[in-house]
Simulated assay, not measured.
Amino acid sequence: MKPSILSHSVHAILRDLGENSTGAELVKSVLDPLVGVVALQGPPGVGKTSLVRLVAQSLSSVFPGGAYWVLPSYGPFAEQVERAQTTLSDGSLVVIDEWDAFKGRSPMGRLLSAAERHANKSTVLIVGRSDIGLPDVDALVVAMRPGPPLVPSWILGEASEDIASYGSFTQVGLIDQHGSPLSPSSPAGQTLIVEARKGDRELLRRIGSDPDLIYQISPRRFEELVAKVYEELGYEVSLTPASGDGGRDLQVAKKDHLGSFLYFVECKRYSKDRPVGVGLVRQLHGVVSAAQASAGVLITTSSFTKGARAFQEAVPHRMSLKAYTDFRAWLAEAGFSSGAN
């Protein structure tokens, strides 16, 4: 059965998202035991994918089968749909992003029909534009409206109205104290980059001395710190965008006497009492297989469920699970422990 919206874990998710937000409405729709298919629709650029990632990550631990993503970049369409359909009987959340690329294909109809049969324990969540069009499926539609950045209101506090008054940001990069673009190759840009790296090292040293500090940083900051540790350990690291990352947060490469290797790394900054479930492990394994990467690594600030461990043990050379104790060992190896100079 799907977890009740009155349960403690779901109540905490709704509180974090904001009780009256589109995210909270989406969570309630996904957990409705009478609904097997939910469609989040809205025009381009309003933050649909970012919201769904936030909701899916929040709900992955309350669905026994975790969250499973279907995306054009993840591999052959029919294979993805077949794997997704097998997860529905376990009680899972299947997310189909970029719906316009899949709409109308016959295997999708079988998946949606299966979702309706398993509505009491699983949900298929479709993300697309306003013309989703599901004539043969009894889907619950949630409209995504343009609004301020997707940050829970309890974090923003009194600043929420100020942030909402700003328009969308259309460019990324370095800026100077006057808000003007700053070239990374300029002396001022190089100084800023060096200072930022010093800040990473100082924070990692503090975490090495006080491990509980990790729970005070954002999930994105955790990804950045993991990337920094990999760099200190001699790897070449590419940090993917905060949204639309293709199912991995980092791409980590290393070349040695055995050859060249590429690892996909997914980072989960979870609380101590929130273990990572099998759904996320299965999802990363699918991304690794589709892209023919060397292996996948899922690292978390918590631990892993028995199901997650069992899945990894079946594919030990393609998947590696790293709990917070492993990350702390990396800190020591990279020289960030309390005893390091």
Rank of each mutant, 00 (worst) to 15 (best):
A253N: 13
V151K: 08
G36I: 06
P148N: 00
R15L: 13
P135L: 03
D249A: 08
V37F: 09
C267W: 01
L262V: 15
S320H: 12
H317A: 13
H118T: 11
S122I: 03
P211H: 07
V52L: 10
V52E: 04
K28A: 15
G277H: 05
R248E: 14
Y74Q: 12
T301I: 01
V37D: 00
A39Y: 02
T49K: 08
L258K: 03
T86V: 13
Q283I: 00
D212R: 15
A67R: 00
K322I: 07
A310S: 09
P43L: 01
G65K: 00
P211Q: 05
L204D: 08
D90A: 13
L140F: 13
P43T: 06
R248N: 13
S60F: 01
H285D: 14
V252S: 02
S4F: 05
V27M: 04
L111C: 06
E158Y: 05
L284I: 02
H178V: 14
S260L: 14
I5Y: 02
V226L: 02
D131V: 07
L331A: 06
D256R: 01
E266C: 07
T240R: 15
R129C: 04
F222I: 08
A188Q: 15
V229H: 11
V278W: 06
F261I: 03
L54W: 02
Q177A: 15
A143E: 15
D16Q: 10
A39F: 00
E313M: 14
L14K: 07
P149C: 02
A340S: 15
D16E: 12
H118Y: 15
L125Y: 01
D131L: 09
H178T: 15
P219K: 10
E25V: 00
K2T: 03
G208T: 14
L51F: 05
W99D: 00
R201Q: 13
F336R: 10
D210S: 14
G246E: 14
W330V: 03
Y263A: 11
L34K: 12
I96S: 04
L298A: 11
R53H: 10
E98L: 06
A242C: 04
L182C: 08
L262H: 12
Y270A: 03
V229S: 04
G296P: 05
H8Q: 14
V124M: 10
L51T: 08
G247S: 10
P316I: 10
T170W: 11
P219W: 08
D200N: 13
G339K: 12
R15C: 07
V137N: 06
G23L: 07
T170Y: 13
I13P: 00
I214Q: 09
L59T: 08
V265M: 08
Q80Y: 00
A67W: 01
R105L: 13
S303T: 12
R274E: 14
E232T: 09
G307E: 02
G234K: 04
G307L: 05
S209W: 00
P146R: 03
A290E: 09
F327E: 07
S168M: 12
H257N: 13
V281N: 05
V281R: 03
